[in-house]
């Protein structure tokens, strides 16, 4: 989807965060890959819910996303707390 110019703060923050994760887990590509999978799962659930117009409850809540990422980033407190800045209702 096209990126919108009127949201540069969130976009720049997301770029720098993704870069940070990539660098941190350079030697552990599976961790980075799992993180991407969690994000995509979340996005898919959100999309399903949106398309169903309220008649579908996402199977993955923000709390569950946070818990999964916490498991993944267990010794990386800074990455986890920064992730919390992205999550709605974290």
């Amino acid at each position: 989807p096209p990126l919108q110019n009127n949201q540069p703060v969130e976009f720049n923050h997301a770029i720098s965060y993704v870069n940070k994760i990539k660098n941190r887990f350079q030697g552990q590509p599976n961790i980075y890959k799992s993180f991407l999978e969690i994000l995509h799962k979340y996005q898919k659930e959100q999309r399903n819910a949106k398309e169903a117009g309220g008649s579908y409850t996402p199977a993955l809540t923000e709390q569950e996303v946070y818990a999964e990422v916490a498991q993944l980033f267990k010794n990386q407190e800074d990455l986890l707390s920064e992730f919390g800045q992205f999550l709605p209702d974290a």
Partner: peptide, 27 residues
């Protein structure tokens, strides 16, 4: 570095839309 793969770009997209949603719900 900014050598992003399409997968990275989609992660950026998800994260920034999450942050937008968060901001919208706070304001």
């Amino acid at each position: 570095s900014y050598d992003f793969t399409p997968l990275d770009s989609s992660a950026v997209y998800v994260l920034s839309s999450m942050a937008r949603q968060r901001r919208a719900s706070q304001s």
